[in-house]
Design a protein around this nucleic acid. Structure first.
Lengths: 225, 225
DNA sequence: TGACATAATTTTGAATGCAAAATTAAATAT
DNA sequence: ATATTTAATTTTGCATTCAAAATTATGTCA
């Protein structure tokens, strides 16, 4: 066998592991939208048989990352502007809810941690370190979601965010947008510290809408879909 | 073979068909919460092999209807009060959004259809025909969701509603609650006809909260969770 | 008899095998 | 040469098989 085994899987159920790995491949763009999923190739790469691979693909399909066409396999779902305009309102509703719930339940310790991430993020912004900025940003949103203490909410959000994260990776922000996003984050932290759930919900929804605009402008410019 | 074949499947992909059938089994309570899913039995019943059955179970697991435990198979996820209290806020947010979007996009024809269902529902209420009432009720909510023109939203809602519908089946309403629900439906129709999205969103969220109370009271009374 | 160990059985997870469908390649006719 | 069959190949969906893990049954000894 002439296969590189260095990516072979060891722990827990294969299909579960595969779901995660394929998700990453799609989100990070190694598998590009519209492309047919090379089932056989992936099986060889991860050194698994088709059974767990196909199980994983079924799960990804139910999450909307992959599209199954009867008798002709699976392809990576394309991210179109239309698609994003569907997903974002739903995510917006979920984020708003997460903000409201978080304010009810968040602890001082958690707020402190978010505040820390926030200031780190500002530092990365000022130094124009985009990847680190993104990481801190994501940490904040994840922390808010976690503070909402609702696994169902978190799961739904995670599913949708997988569908758009890919797009977010590609679209880079203009100077003004970035500035605006940072300003919004100041409001987010303030609302959180004031435990003003309604306000936080509204801000998060707006914040997301701005992201949508960034991304969908980019998509329209670099049309492919 | 000593198996009744009358439930055997013919059309489209087996796993897809199975997802639907198992969902029904769970929602309608033939498979009860906590119970281990009798994989082999179900395979025989539907006359399929374990491969598509397991694919279907993986999908249901990602939707939260069943729980997979490594090396010891799948069991029907139990609906506890805690669980419901997680799911309902999320559904509430989605329903509110569906109300808002529906008001923006709904056609006069669709409103007329909903109005018709509404009046039928009132008829069933007055005649105390509970099952027919439920059916008309569901038709209305489905129509609103459809009018929102957002497949992502519909899909998310459908997933969550599967998790609670089962509970709704069991819990029957008191006279006052029923009356209240009908009154709320008058408001729903009115907001829809006025195309007042914000208002409809709020009403739908309240409406759902009342449902939660009905169901969770029942669950607490008949505790099994 | 009851606690523990050991063997038989069942269940589970995943690989392999096989037939039908789809795709590609080759061949024939126009 | 181009369109149209026809044949070969690949891919897909599902059944079957197999090994490992878990469960149950049986046996042993205090």
């Amino acid at each position: 066998m002439n296969i590189t085994m260095d990516e072979a899987i060891v722990r827990r159920s294969l299909h579960d592991e595969l779901v995660e790995r394929l998700q990453r491949l799609i989100i990070e763009g190694e598998l590009t939208p519209g492309e047919k999923v090379p089932e056989k190739e992936l099986c060889e790469r991860y050194n698994v048989s088709r059974t767990p691979m196909r199980e994983a693909l079924k799960v990804l399909a139910s999450e909307g990352l992959v599209t199954l066409t009867p008798n002709r396999g699976s392809s990576v779902t394309a991210v179109t502007v239309d698609d994003l305009e569907e997903v974002f309102p739903v995510m917006g509703a979920l984020e708003a809810l997460s903000g409201e719930l978080a304010c009810e339940k968040i602890t001082d310790v958690e707020i402190a941690a978010i505040s820390k991430s926030h200031h780190e993020m500002i530092g990365h912004y000022k130094a124009k370190r985009l990847p680190e900025y993104f990481a801190a940003n994501e940490a904040i949103h994840t922390a808010i979601l976690k503070a909402a203490r609702n696994d169902t909410l978190a799961a739904q959000h995670r599913m949708l965010s997988a569908r758009v994260r890919r797009a977010r990776y590609l679209a880079n922000m203009t100077r003004e947008r970035w500035e605006k996003a940072v300003a919004e984050h100041e409001d987010i932290l303030a609302a959180l510290e004031a435990r003003d759930g309604r306000k936080l919900g509204i801000i998060l929804k707006h914040h997301l809408r701005n992201k949508l605009e960034t991304v969908s402008e980019w998509l329209k410019a670099n049309d492919r879909g």
